[in-house]
Every structure is written in C-alpha cells, then in structure tokens.
Amino acid sequence: MRSKIFVLISSVLLIILLQTTLLEYIKFNSIKPNLLLVFIVSVALLRGNIEGAVTGFFAGLMQDIVSGKVIGFYALLGMYLGIAIGSVNKRLYRDNFFVALVFSFVASIVYESVVYFFGVFLKGQTDFIYSFTNIILPEAVYNMAATVIIFFIVMKIDDRIKKSNKSSRKY
C-alpha cells in the first residue's frame, strides 16, 4: 500500500515536471500532449475506478497548482475521468493496447471539451469549431501516441505490484 502511494506520487511529479518543461520542445503545431490525462486513463484502465479516481484527483490537483488559475478544477475533472474510465474497464480486456488507445482518444476529446467550456467558452471565446480542429483534435491524436509509451510503463509497474502482492501473501 505504502509503496503504491509512493509510486503514484513520484510518477505524477515526474510527469508534471516533464509536462511543464521538456514537452515545450516537442510541440507539434504548438500543441503538446497531455501526459497526465494519459496517465490517469492508463491507471484507471488497469487498476479500476477507486485507484483511477485517486490518481485523477491527485494528478489534477498538481496541475491546478502548477497552472495556477483556480485550485480544484482539474482535480475534480481528473477524479471524474478516473471514475468513469475505471468503471467501464471491468467489461473489457484491460491490458489490450487497442482499448487503451481508443479510450485515451475519447477521454482527451471529452476532457478538453469540458476544459474548453469552463475555461474558454464562458469567458467569451465562442468559436468552438476552431478550438476543436486546432487544439482538441490534434491533442487527442498526440495523446494516443503518448499512450503507447505511458500505458506500457504503467502496465509494467502494474505487473510488479501484482507480483509483489502475491509473494507477500504466501507466508
């Protein structure tokens, strides 16, 4: 349990650091992928809705603090994302790459549309078509590419945790 929390906190910190610094240099058409979202989707798919919700909450809170406009918005959104994806995962092959790709694509579109609505639309920038084709859609595609890497890493960590759980139960 304790090691699980440690892994969660350190990976979220690592991702937020990458997200705010080095990802600037791999921008494509001034769009960067959202690694935190991909991480939440991967964890929720592999570990279910409770851990998905905790990861989403924590990752969102970090994003709130680092982006600094309002605290709580991304935390709430991340938590709901984790719950939603974690709840559907029981009916699917959870460690299937293709499922993860589709989920991260759909989740990106829904998540960024919500961010657009509350963070942009309500402030008077009402051109949704532009935002969708120029920000949301390219980011979703980019997130799919990032899923390949992050989902693989999360899957490896997940295997480790499962193994150590089994061996600790033996005694």
């Binding site: 705010t20 610094t21 769009i31 994003q63 680092v66 961010v115 963070g119 942009v120 980011e139």
Partner: peptide, 14 residues
C-alpha cells in the same frame, strides 16, 4: 522562464 502551462489552452508561465 522555467516552466510553461501544462495544458494547451493558456499562456501562463513560471
């Protein structure tokens, strides 16, 4: 400037 905004919507930097 040591960091940019994590998302694609805002132009806030640290």
């Amino acid at each position: 400037i040591i960091a940019k905004d994590p998302g694609n919507w805002f132009n806030v930097f640290t």
